[in-house]
């Protein structure tokens, strides 16, 4: 789709024309190449994303603020001020109005003399195999030229299927426009060659933006650095989450975690919604055939019973005709059909 190298000069330099079969020649200069549709200065189309190093997150929430600021998201929470009860977390979760969410995990001993903070700036994972995109029945969710996943607010009709399909609980309805919304990885900024607002605002480079291949190299180097440092034996090893293709084809927003994924509120084995379908549809199909056969057998039995009753009645009536003295209606006298 978008090409950074496209310039107006490149599209108007060639004067030749093309002649369609049996048609009038069309000057090629009047047909802009696909690259001409790319805004000037856009990033070249290649997989882009986030690498979030949670080990250097300080929980400042600059990413949350920058995201809301750039994307025009309300920060009033409907005018309701509530405390979450989850440490310094006051936005609770990702949803239609919170496209970045900083999680605060307190790991302290009972007397609080020993412990540590874990902080993590969570965001849409822009899955390479995205469950939301898979189930969306309107085509509102699309994959961009940057391999990111974007919801088109003017197409979404708010069926909410994507909300339950997302294995990470990222998407929700934005109460302002009543459509499903989430992080766009600042698609509009990418078209201007600008990095996403959250990554630009992050003061510790916990959120890093760039081509996925390059980010993976950086993450691997950082992981090895952390593993080489001494740490308590009881503490789990740091790990990368979503940097390989072990689930969902990989995540275009992946993480370096300092504990188990579940501790950060991340599923261990996130799945595509369609993975659950074959067994479900297969069992229902077998059931449909079974119910149909039951119905057929029932109708056949009823017909056989009717035939038997008719035959019995005929035989009784025939006997009655040949033996006028015979009485009708006795079951013992009727032959079995």
């Amino acid at each position: 789709m978008a090409q950074q190298s496209a310039t107006p000069a490149a599209t108007t330099a060639a004067p030749p024309s093309a002649t369609p079969a049996g048609g009038t020649p069309v000057p090629l200069a009047s047909i802009p190449p696909a690259s001409a549709y790319a805004p000037p200065g856009a990033f070249p189309p290649e997989p882009l994303g986030f690498y979030t190093d949670t080990s250097v997150c300080i929980g400042c929430k600059a990413c949350e603020v920058a995201c809301k600021n750039w994307n025009g998201l309300s920060s009033r929470n409907g005018g309701v001020n509530t405390l979450s009860g989850d440490s310094y977390d006051n936005t609770r979760r990702l949803d239609g109005q919170h496209w970045r969410h900083v999680k605060f995990i307190e790991q302290f001993s009972e007397d609080r003399t020993n412990g540590r903070w874990l902080m993590m700036s969570d965001v849409c994972k822009h899955c390479v195999q995205a469950g939301c995109l898979e189930v969306c029945p309107t085509g509102a969710i699309m994959r961009t030229e940057y391999d990111t996943v974007v919801i088109q607010a003017d197409v979404c009709n708010g069926c909410r299927d994507c909300i339950g399909a997302c294995p990470f609980g990222v998407i929700d309805i934005n109460p302002v426009n009543n459509t499903a919304m989430k992080c766009t990885l600042c698609y509009d900024r990418l078209h201007r060659g600008m990095e996403p607002a959250c990554a630009q605002a992050c003061p510790t480079a916990s959120i890093q933006f760039g081509p996925i291949a390059e980010l993976k190299q950086r993450a691997q180097a950082r992981l090895e650095q952390l593993k080489s440092q001494p740490r308590p034996e009881s503490r789990p090893e740091p790990r990368l989450y979503g940097a390989d293709e072990s689930f969902l084809g990989g995540l275009n927003a992946f993480y370096l975690l300092d504990d188990e994924p579940e501790v950060y509120g991340l599923p261990n084995h996130p799945a595509l919604p369609s993975q659950h379908l074959p067994a479900n549809v297969g069992l229902a199909a077998v059931g449909a055939v079974g119910v149909g056969l039951l119905g057929l057998l029932g109708l056949r039995k009823r017909r056989m019973d009717e035939f038997a009753a008719e035959a019995r009645a005929e035989q009784i009536s025939d006997r009655g005709a040949t033996d006028p003295g015979m009485t009708l209606g006795s079951d013992e006298e009727a032959p079995h059909a």
Binding site: G131, D161, G164, H276, V281, A284, G287
Partner: peptide, 16 residues
């Protein structure tokens, strides 16, 4: 079933 929600995605028997 085509979600990631408790019960719905956890059991293949709901359709039947």
């Amino acid at each position: 079933a085509a979600t990631n929600r408790p019960l719905w995605a956890d059991s293949p028997w709901i359709g039947l």
